[in-house]
Amino acid sequence: MLPVFPEVTLFVQCMVDAMAPEAAMGMVRLFDRLGIATSFPEDQTCCGQPAFNAGYRTASRKSAMHFIQVFENAECIVCPSGSCVAMVRHHYLELFADDPHWLARAKKVGGNIFELTEFLVDVLHISDVGAAYQGTVTYHDSCHLLRSLGVGRQPRELLSHVRGLTLVEMAQSDRCCGFGGTFSIKYPDISTALVADKVERILETGADTVVGCDMGCLLNIEGYLTRMGHPVTVKHIAELLAP
């Protein structure tokens, strides 16, 4: 028996919205299949993470306040991005540390937001979504998802129940891919060295597909794979769970 949720409010990370809509559509299909109603507040934009990590807190607060206004009445927010959830759940507290009014509102929103795989496995207690995928898959642990939210077991559990899918772990799956937001723009040489290592680890597995839960990392990995001409498909986990 599933716990009864009146509705899941979708927060579709700005990068997914713009560049990987199929991941968010996968998430929608997934909830449709599970019989869970979804809503999408159209006024949503960005959680403010890029500015926050780059040090521009005044700018970040502006985005964060907007986010809070849009989502503060939602009972259950689900997002297909670990780092955005970490931003809302943990870093909003830093951002509004000296503003009790906004801090209280931030805490409320922070308590209601979940990353997709965390929501499926820990909240809904579902590890088999009835998906099938023919292929050998390797999983990349995104840093904030793994270290700030402690989510690593959940996506693996979901993948292990996908019919036809063979999961092959890469070495150092929890090593940073070198994205790091503005880091990859300001320090392209270091970032490239890191993504090159990541891709090497991926290729070592012989997997035909690399899966993750954060679009930033995935675009970075995909960008290097494509440029180097390696025929490995990059997929957000939602695309794979509900093709």
Partner: peptide, 25 residues
């Protein structure tokens, strides 16, 4: 932003972002 694409390519912004797909789903 040029440094990023020295070693990588980047997906384009979708012609149909999620928010428009959501409307017509």
């Amino acid at each position: 932003l040029a440094g990023w694409t020295r070693s990588r390519t980047l997906r384009k912004i979708s012609s149909r972002p999620f928010r428009s797909q959501w409307k017509s789903r």
